[in-house]
């Protein structure tokens, strides 16, 4: 294609084997109008510097691998286009608030533990054999939790959350959205299963309603809403009202 321009990409580099501090490295990258930031990084890796490290996989904004700070804001690099950042430079850094493993790759282990804490699976009142066929769930019942089931675990919301930055133990937006997703599912017995996680010091009350998490979510999930509806639930639980409602 003829429509090739050049843009500077400045990437944060950190090698745990040799570096004590991260540094910035600059690359001049030729690009066409349909190229994403991710494709820019792939160009660097293939042609300029094979040691630049970043995660990616589906390149269509559904696997959640390629989140990074692009010019200071959390984005999926596969759906952020270089043409929109021209003339640059484009600064790419690992997602804020996470420990850096190498270059743009962050340590995600903490999130996986938080997911465990919220019991991310259906807990039903009674097991029914598969031979009885699927449960009924009306479109309205599906709609009640559907939005929260759209989370791709890309962790942009954690990079957007200063409370998580200040307290890495905060269960945080994505995990609490999934907590809400299961609580709202008509097939789940609801609140009582996950009350401890929501009520904990690092649970919903750690949120101070900054709201940036909901702004950056690439999938239209509204984590701030999930967290804050659960403040109501947590307060009702404290007052004993939840028990009167049968723990839902």
């Amino acid at each position: 294609m003829t429509d090739t321009r050049t843009i500077r990409i400045e990437a944060l580099r950190f090698n745990p084997e040799t570096d004590s501090e991260p540094r910035l490295q600059r690359y001049e990258v030729p690009f066409t109008p349909d190229m994403s930031v991710l494709q820019g990084l792939q160009y660097i890796k293939d042609h300029l510097d094979g040691s630049l490290t970043f995660r990616w996989s589906c390149r269509m904004a559904v696997c959640g691998s390629c989140g990074m700070m692009i010019n200071g804001r959390p984005h999926l690099s596969c759906e952020t286009f270089l043409r929109d950042l021209y003339p640059g430079p484009v600064r790419v850094e690992p997602l804020d608030h996470f420990p850096v493993q190498r270059d743009l790759a962050i340590d995600q282990a903490g999130f996986l533990d938080k997911l465990a804490a919220i019991k991310p699976y259906i807990v039903s009142a009674k097991e029914r054999p598969l031979s009885e066929g699927p449960s009924r769930q009306t479109p309205a019942q599906l709609d009640a939790y559907y939005q929260y089931s759209q989370c791709i675990n890309c962790l942009l919301c954690y990079a957007a959350c200063p409370q998580f930055g200040l307290n890495p133990d905060f269960i945080g937006p994505a995990a609490l959205s999934l907590l809400h997703r299961y609580n709202l599912d008509s097939r789940d017995i609801g609140w009582s299963v996950r009350a401890d996680a929501a009520n904990a010091d690092v649970g919903v009350w750690e949120c101070t309603v900054v709201g940036y998490c909901s702004e950056v979510c690439p999938k239209g999930v509204d984590p701030m809403h999930a967290v804050n509806e659960n403040k109501v639930n947590s307060a009702l639980d404290y007052l004993g009202v939840k028990r009167l409602l049968g723990g839902r």
């Binding site: 950190f14 745990p16 084997e17 570096d19 501090e21 991260p22 200071g72 804001r73 804020d96 608030h97 420990p99 850096v100 493993q101 340590d107 957007a160 200063p162 930055g165 200040l166 101070t208 309603v209 900054v210 709201g211 940036y212 702004e215």
Partner: peptide, 23 residues
């Protein structure tokens, strides 16, 4: 051991993003 680098949260973190400033 997995060695990682934890970037400090600067005191002026809230000045770096309009959403944080409004907050």
């Amino acid at each position: 051991e997995v060695r990682t680098y934890r970037r400090p949260m600067p005191a002026d973190w809230w000045t770096r993003n309009p959403s944080y400033v409004v907050y």
